[in-house]
Simulated scan of single mutants.
Amino acid sequence: MVLFNLGGPDSPEAVKPFLYNLFNDPAIISVPWPVRPLLARLISSRRAPVAREIYAEIGGRSPLVPLTEEQAETLAAAIGESGEGEAKVFIAMRYWHPMADETARFVKAYGPDEIVLLPLYPQFSTTTTGSSVKDWKRAAQVAGLDVPTRTVCCYPLEEGWIAAQADLLRQAIRKSGEGPVRVLFSAHGLPKKVIASGDPYQWQVEQTSAAVAEAVGADMPEWVVCYQSRVGPLEWIGPSTEDEIARAGADGVGLVVVPIAFVSEHSETLVELDIEYAELAAHKGVASYVRVPAVATHSSFVAGLARVVGEVRGRAAGSVCPNGGRRICPAVHGRCPATQV
Rank of each mutant, 00 (worst) to 15 (best):
D101V: 10
Y277P: 00
Y227S: 00
V332G: 09
R335P: 03
L42W: 14
D146M: 05
F18R: 01
F301Y: 15
A294C: 10
V212S: 05
V253R: 02
G85W: 11
E81Q: 14
V332P: 01
D199H: 07
S319H: 05
A215R: 15
R47E: 12
L38E: 07
A296T: 15
I245L: 00
E265I: 12
P239V: 01
V89M: 07
T269H: 04
L169M: 13
G238R: 00
Y20Q: 08
A210V: 13
L75Y: 03
I328T: 13
F90Y: 06
V107K: 02
L184R: 00
G285E: 06
D251K: 03
S176N: 10
F90Q: 10
F124N: 02
V133L: 11
Y55V: 04
A104F: 03
G7N: 04
E268D: 15
L6K: 01
Y155M: 06
S44V: 11
E244Y: 00
A261E: 05
T241N: 01
N21K: 12
G310I: 09
H333T: 06
F301V: 14
A100F: 14
R247E: 03
D25Y: 12
A56N: 08
N24T: 11
A92E: 10
P330V: 08
A282L: 09
A104N: 03
S264T: 12
C329W: 07
R47M: 10
V216D: 07
S197W: 05
Q171V: 15
G7M: 04
I29K: 04
K284G: 00
E244T: 00
S11R: 08
W161S: 07
S131W: 08
E86H: 11
Q202V: 09
I237H: 01
R150P: 02
D274C: 14
V181R: 02
S125W: 02
S11A: 10
Y95K: 06
W203G: 04
E265R: 06
L157K: 13
V302R: 00
A281G: 13
S288C: 11
E13R: 08
K134H: 08
P32K: 11
V302S: 06
D25K: 14
S299P: 13
E159G: 05
S186M: 12
P293R: 03
S288D: 10
A164H: 05
G177D: 14
Y95I: 08
H266P: 14
L255A: 02
A140P: 02
R52N: 04
R335D: 12
D167H: 14
V225I: 05
I54L: 15
G252M: 02
Y121F: 15
P66G: 12
Q123H: 15
R105P: 02
C153T: 13
A78S: 10
G334Y: 09
A166Y: 05
G310T: 12
T241D: 01
V142D: 15
V133Q: 05
E268P: 06
G285S: 06
A40H: 07
A250K: 10
L234A: 15
